[in-house]
Design a protein around this nucleic acid. Structure first.
Lengths: 341, 341
DNA sequence: GTTAGCACTCATTTATTTTGAGTGCTAACG
DNA sequence: CGTTAGCACTCAAAATAAATGAGTGCTAAC
């Protein structure tokens, strides 16, 4: 849909003003604050057109206009100019994400989540890397007692995962050492998906003597790695109280219950085909957050896209700013994760 | 303070009714629903006395009475009879906490948290075991690359903790093996607090050749174990919307911001001298939750008190039921953790 | 000591009015 | 023809007023 120049300006004015004030925008406001050389009457005519096109809507007859989902979409795609953080701000963010004594993946991710909500003032969510896309760098068995083994898997993406295994028969250090060598030898470098029947039977052939204990180990480890294990970190969940659209108790509740359900949330924030995505209102498919917008970006470790960072907030969201921030932070994260590995 | 029998009955009636209805309780209601053989006028006289004693208060002149903090306290300490779950319910809870393919500490705790909020309909919080009170059962170093080591610590309380270490100089498998043996030998059985200068220098004397790498390891591991690392799990945070006292946006917000701050929350739910504790309104010390009550109990692993389970909700809380549930679940948890180790 | 009776209080509910921001339409203007 | 001033009309929200009713404290009688 191609809009005339003036219509674009008016749509932009309405979206901008509505984002700022949360009040429906009237023709007089636009004529005074944004387009001083056109009269309210003319603006009214244009607004009527924009409403016919489905880009604006009117809460009730005697109110101003607010953008519709499609209106926001048009604004995001065709009108807005992304506002990136200033170089100083970028430096500050880098600083916040790099300084730390212990270089733990988890800590960087937690800190990123907090940072995101602090800067944007919306609710932020970060998905931790999933084991499934990573390949195994090292698999180590630790003997804890005669019948208790802990398997520790370290991936090329820096994830460390522990699996507790009850052994069917007693194990000693020698056995563990042998099992360790074989498993490590056969599994390192493989992704979870690579581990199939052929690999397993190959290992099994090297393990005639331990077949029982081996199958206990492999099944538990395999199950544990296969399950979708990426966690989600959340920050700034109470930020929504700053936005008048959530003055209504039920609205706030609906939002927060959605947020509380980690399954739903993970679903919404999981990566899709794009490495960057803005989804507005009904676009995000879930009835419960049909008046929210979500902006998300992916991040990489070891050149693999392993997780996403994002924010969720009211549709009346400062898209230009949020998009700039998310793009920048996802870039910075990629840099950080390049260095720390 | 010793109360007459009738006063006790009236206080009990008021607390019971207020817990149920959230409405100030008037003399007529009591005469009709609870003490049918006394007239409202008499009850009014008694209520005036109870108010003088500081056990009741009146929101405004023409309203009924509600219990004060002290009133609740008297009710909890002197009047209420704990309502324990039925044997069937107990069995159900046991079932929920025991059935699982992989016996992971984390999963049991997560499930407990969910269970608690589901049953009580309040917000539940569970503190995971802290490494600090545990002793080391096994410490294993894993070589990930020339300069990357992961230390895995398994405690007698079933905690598994990973620490990433950047080695100052390259390590090979032989070195790791040797370090492993020495560390394991010297550290297992010790608690974190046991690890002091003497132990460290003792190990150091066995490690002349690796002194540099050793100090890298010991400092990072020690730091990591020393820090207070118990996490807190939360469930049912949106349950508060079911209670009319949180109809007010600001009240809800205050509660939820408190809940969001893991530091504050951990503080409130950490164990104190008692293994069971009810804290009402102002008693819990924090201005932000002065109209909440907290009930918490501890749980043990390997005969050590390692964490707490609890719920937080409005002062108008069904204490008798919540206390019964928490006591039961903490017992069940202790049983479960006895078996799984 | 207990209770019926009554005047009084005050939050809550319901109804009514006022206000004002905003619109659409018409007619005039350049 | 596009633009704009003018005006009647709409309707949510705010302000005001009145009605309701649950509950109290006090007094006097049982």
């Amino acid at each position: 849909m191609e809009l005339g120049d003036r219509k674009k300006k008016i749509l932009k004015a309405i979206v901008t003003d509505y984002i700022e004030t949360a009040e429906p925008v009237g023709s007089r406001t636009i004529a005074k604050k944004y387009l001083t050389d056109i009269s309210p009457a003319t603006i009214r005519n244009e607004m009527a057109d924009l409403e016919d096109l489905g880009l604006l809507e009117q809460p009730h007859t005697s109110a101003g206009r607010i953008p519709s989902d499609r209106g926001y979409r048009y604004y995001v795609d065709q009108i807005m100019e992304v506002k990136y953080p200033s170089p100083q701000e970028i430096e500050k963010i880098k600083y916040m994400l790099q300084i730390q004594t212990i270089n733990e993946l988890d800590k960087i991710i937690k800190r990123t989540t907090k940072l995101l909500s602090d800067i944007t003032k919306y609710t932020s969510a970060v998905l931790t890397p999933s084991v499934r896309k990573s390949s195994i760098r090292s698999l180590q068995l630790i003997r804890v007692s005669d019948y208790d083994i802990v398997a520790v898997v370290v991936t090329d993406t820096g994830i460390i995962k522990n699996v507790v295994i009850k052994s069917p028969n007693a194990v000693d250090d020698a056995k563990i050492l042998k099992l360790n060598n074989i498993l490590n030898d056969k599994l390192s470098g493989l992704t979870i998906n690579d581990i199939g029947l052929t690999v397993i039977s190959d290992i099994q052939s090297h393990m005639r003597e331990y077949s029982e204990i081996f199958s206990a180990i492999i099944s538990v480890v395999y199950e544990s790695l296969k399950e979708d294990d990426s966690e989600i970190y959340l920050e700034g969940t109470t930020n929504i109280f700053d936005y008048p659209e959530y003055d209504d108790k039920d609205k706030a509740r609906r939002f927060l219950s959605f947020i509380e359900d980690k399954k739903l949330l993970t679903n919404v924030f999981s990566e899709d085909e794009n490495d960057f995505c803005v989804s507005i209102g009904c676009e995000n498919g879930n009835e419960k957050i049909k008046d929210c917008s979500i902006v998300k970006a992916t991040y990489n470790i070891a050149d693999k896209t392993v997780g996403t960072i994002g924010i969720i907030g009211p549709k009346r969201m400062d898209y230009a700013r949020v998009v700039g921030i998310l793009k920048s932070i996802s870039n910075i994260l990629n840099e950080v994760f390049e260095k720390t590995l």
